[in-house]
Amino acid sequence: MSSRRSRSGPTLNFKAVLLGEGCVGKTSLVLRYMEDKFNPQHLSTLQASFVTKKVTLPDERRAQLNIWDTAGQERFHALGPIYYRGSDGALLVYDITDQDSFQKVKSWVRELKQMRGTEISLIIVGNKTDLEEQRAIGYEDARQYAQTVGAQYLEASAKENEGVAEIFELLTQLMLERLSQRERDAEPPNLLRLDASDAVSVSEGEEGNGEDTGTGQRSCCGI
């Protein structure tokens, strides 16, 4: 999986995966976020679809989200690892009107915890809040469950475009924090001391240097 971030480049690369039972709205969430569209009738996803989106982080850095939107059917469960392996974040989606789909989220949580431990940021997403009157899972129940497994909890409606962008923004933020954390751990102690005040500034500085060197070299050649 060379889709992993290349830390030296100016663009950060994050890999995320959407998991959850069939027909809970995984593709709809992606479609809403990517193109601000909603289609009540669309095809079921086969295997998985790959999409990317470039975003600008609050600190002006650019990042690319590489998202695997997977198929929901149980039969494809065995293919899960090829998508969540190497992922920085996962969105576990369920349908708030469907108890079974929430159970499926729990089983994904167990699997991800076992296979990836704390290396992956988890957000549990309750989709279809437009069907509030048919709600089967209470907001508090879901939020508490998420807390116990160290995941974030958000609700959204891809149909009404409520809370969709927030999901991906939070996901990016979580993946960024995890990256900064890892970089801080990986760096030699003396460097860490210089910039220990703010984790974000560490990576920011690094990125800036990377870019400068790049352009510097280019202008050298040009002259």
């Binding site: 479609l31 996803t45 999409v51 989106k53 470039k54």
Partner: peptide, 26 residues
Amino acid sequence: PVNTLANANSTFWKNSGRRVPGRPSP
């Protein structure tokens, strides 16, 4: 990336305008 410029100011999160596989294009 196509269409990156248009949304730069309007939204905080840039829209790359890429197609979702199998989805109607923007």
